[in-house]
Design a binder for these strands. Structure first.
Length: 581
RNA sequence: GCUGGCGUAGCUCAGUGGUAGAGCAUCACAUUGGUAAUGUGAAGGCCGUGGGUUCAAUCCCCACCGCCAGCUCCA
């Protein structure tokens, strides 16, 4: 599964099993490394989505020049067309064969009793491997080495760091070329690049990484997303709340956030001997509002919503444009309800998330049920609510074991960006834990106190991440209802400038986002400029338009031009916006 | 945070142990134009920051900050 509809899919794989081919390429790489860098110890080297990698333990770093040499040697090995031959051996035999390589020995020791242990050979290189290869190295039609990066042995940061060489391989050169073309197209949609080209946002070195400065055009889009979400909140009976950004640390002690991820929180800030924290999430604040009054079952469900800005200390190496940041605003809401109301409220929250995704034309998302690492007695109820909601909407989902929040399991909605990286957007979470920790109550019809259930939910996830994925989804060519500038009035010469301003002002008076191009340039230049800015409509006005009170409409993506009255254009734009197109 | 790579004008990038260049963008002037770049000129840089080596550092060395690709992490 991959990507949204508008993101170009990578080239189709050919009938040869591409994973086998790439796994074979990984062996060829290890063979080349054995020849050129005998001191490097091979560890593991699987095929991955778009290629393969192989991890080596070696003191010195592989340089880009080393990669070139290795690739050249690999091509020789491919050309020699060595057959891939495998044989089954005993565990002792395998350990003996790799006695100089502690990594291979470790693998050989840990293969479960009864599972076959196999060695595979091409030419003068033999590897411990479970198999799954092409018949011979000649099956590789095209290969290249892409990069080298650090990777921990067995993915554990306590283990030594190995050097991972990434590469890719295809049955034919044509397929490799197509793959490059795909990467090039994807790079054009990168929200970091478009953010600069379209003047949407930036990250400032002076302010620090992961902190987003929304420029006017970006902020306009954010406002549109916000307003769309607010519409839904009003319809569903959510109540707005606003909570402080810096609060006493005790709040997070009670919530459990401090013990569960203090390392992801900023602070503490000491004032008059008291310790404060910048809020990393909004839930405890909403809980305090719930707790500020006595609650009755008649009040429930109570739904508090806030575009809550939070700050989390993410490791510098993980920051990524808009999609992984240190300060972000969640379209957050917390629902307090009875156990009986849980299912209905959960499903409603899921429906809202779908409403948002559909409005922005997102497709191809993946649903995950993320279970709690340390299961509690209420998890079964919580997970059932999530499963029932997904199944009642006929949504396919996968289970992410242990991926849930510390207070409960959750439903995550993930989307791919242009390069195929996966990002979590919406999330709906069931929480029996925080109401207990904060001793939340409501008076039931039976006259007794009961503990409410909480649902945490964010539809967009964070405004920043949603924006990042949105930019890539549309490749910066936002539909008219979202576009920061919906139309530009472009006079052919200075003589139509006043008319152009007049058209702009008439359209602005109707609530549209319109600019005028007053630059001293020729028409061709202005057209080119606004096309690269991906503005939905360019309205050219020259002598004849001035005389007739019309505009010449250049619609993005449509070659044909139309000359219509200003009012007719206004109607067309209004209809498009109403239809959210 | 870890491994590797990279930081030169607003942007994209050249370049050199003797205090810097191009294209685009910006500004001015000329031009008044019909659908993807009109011409001329000007301005713009503590060569990421701080140390060190050197007669001399943008260039060599070290540290820090930031960016990129991964890893780890991701409420």
């Amino acid at each position: 599964m991959r990507v949204t509809t508008s993101t170009p899919a990578p080239p189709e794989n050919s009938p040869v099993d591409i994973a086998h081919l790439r796994h074979t390429a990984a062996h060829v790489l290890a063979y080349a490394v054995q020849d050129l860098f005998p001191d490097a110890k091979p560890t593991i080297g699987p095929a991955i989505e778009n290629g393969f990698y192989y991890d080596f333990d070696r003191k010195e770093a592989f340089t880009p020049e080393d990669l070139e040499q290795l690739a050249a040697r690999m091509r020789e090995i491919v050309k020699a067309d060595y057959p891939m031959t495998g044989r089954r051996v005993s565990r002792e035999e395998a350990i003996e064969a790799f006695r100089d390589n502690p990594y291979k020995v470790e693998i050989a020791r840990e293969i479960p009793e009864g599972d076959p242990i196999t060695l595979y050979t091409i030419g003068a290189f033999t590897d411990l491997c479970r198999g799954g290869h092409a018949d011979s190295t000649g099956a590789i039609g095209a290969l290249e080495l892409e990069s080298v990066a650090g990777a921990y042995w067995r993915g554990d940061s306590k283990n030594p760091m190995l050097q991972r060489i990434y590469g890719t391989a295809f049955p034919t050169q044509q397929e490799l070329d197509d793959y490059h073309a795909f990467l090039e197209e994807a790079a054009k949609r990168d929200h970091r690049k478009l953010g600069q080209e379209l003047d949407l946002f930036h990250v400032d070195e002076l302010a620090g990484g992961g902190l987003i400065f929304w420029h006017p055009k970006g902020a306009v889009i954010r406002g549109i997303v916000e307003e769309f979400i607010r519409e839904g909140l009003r319809e569903r009976g959510y109540l707005p709340v606003v909570t402080p950004h810096v609060v006493h640390e005790k709040l997070y002690e009670i919530s459990g956030h401090l013990e569960n991820f203090a390392q992801s929180m900023f602070g503490p800030i000491e004032v008059e001997g008291q310790r404060f924290r910048v809020k990393p999430m909004n839930c405890p604040g909403h809980i305090l509002i719930y707790k500020a009054d006595g609650r009755s079952y008649r009040d429930l469900p109570l739904r508090y919503s806030e575009f809550g800005t939070v700050y989390r200390f993410e490791l510098s190496g993980t920051l990524h444009g808009l999609t992984r940041v240190r300060g972000f605003t969640t379209d957050d809401a917390h629902l307090f309800c009875t156990r009986e109301q849980l299912q209905g409220e959960f499903e409603q929250a899921l429906d809202e998330a779908l409403r948002l995704m559909n409005a922005f034309d997102f497709k191809g998302f993946e649903y995950f049920l993320s279970t709690r690492a340390e299961r509690g007695p209420t998890d079964e109820i919580a997970e059932a609510a999530i499963r029932n909601a997904l199944e009642s909407r006929n949504l396919p989902y996968a289970v992410d074991e242990g991926g849930g929040a510390f207070y409960g399991p959750k439903l995550d909605i993930n989307l791919h960006d242009a390069i195929g990286r996966k990002w979590q957007l919406g999330t709906v979470q069931v929480d029996f834990v925080l109401p207990e920790r904060f001793d939340l109550k409501y008076r039931g019809a039976d006259g007794q106190d009961h503990t409410p259930v909480m649902i945490h939910r964010a539809l967009a996830g964070s405004m920043e991440r949603f924006f990042g994925v949105l930019i890539e989804h549309f490749g910066g060519a936002f539909p008219a209802w979202v576009a920061p500038t919906q139309a530009v009035v472009v006079p052919i010469s200075e003589h139509q400038l006043d008319y152009a301003y007049g058209v702009r002002d008439r359209l602005r008076a109707r609530g549209f986002r319109i600019d005028t191009d007053a630059s001293n340039e020729k028409l061709g230049y202005k057209i080119r400029h606004w096309k690269t800015q991906k503005v939905p409509y360019i309205l050219v006005v020259g002598k004849s338009e001035l005389a007739d009170g019309t505009v010449n409409v250049n619609e993005r993506g449509i070659e044909e031009k139309r000359t219509v009255s200003v009012d007719a254009f206004a109607e067309e734009l209004a209809a498009r916006i109403a239809a959210k197109r």
